[in-house]
Amino acid sequence: MRAIFSLMTLVLIALPPVAVVLSGNALATTDMPAQAATCLACHSAATSAASGAPQLAGQQATYLQKQLQQFKNGQRGAAVSDVKGQQMAAMAATLSADDINSLARYFSKQQAEVITSSADAALLDQGRRQYIGSCGACHGAKAEGNMAFNAPALSMLSADYITLQLQHFKTGLRGKDKADKPGRQMALFSRNLSEQDMQAVAAYIGAGMP
């Protein structure tokens, strides 16, 4: 565990701060890895709603890297019931370790586009309490993520995606592997959440945390 942690510290130091602001919403094409265009077919701001795939822009590189590795080695997206996960696992299988590193680094430097969905005011209120009361302690006041806890950014994610992942954590599709400590932490926490709690907090984040 210690070794992994210090490795991550190294990665962190090597990286510039997350969320580098680029001009406009356009994704910078310089240094864009070849496979990135494929990813964006589903993972861009414009396509993510239809595909159900999360926006990757602005996500922490270490998180992206780890998820891709997990998809590739079968720790994530292997279950039959996880249809979307299976699709992603198939994609990840085609990536080399170097591909994964450069893709992760690339997307982490891009700026996410804010997409907001609307929701019932009472649900949002409940979600806000839930978020501030619990989630924000690790994922940050603005859902920007906190590397100190290996907590990914959530702000660019859609309500549907967050709900689905919370369900996956709770039902054991994610966060089961012994070595995946952050995943296990999230899985443990998700068991405190009712279906209603999940809907509420996902709605709140999906709505841009009003």
């Binding site: 209120d125 309490r129 839930q130 501030i132 009361g133 619990s134």
Partner: peptide, 10 residues
Amino acid sequence: LLAASLSTAD
């Protein structure tokens, strides 16, 4: 103390 003590708008 947001979660424990609810005083909702209603």
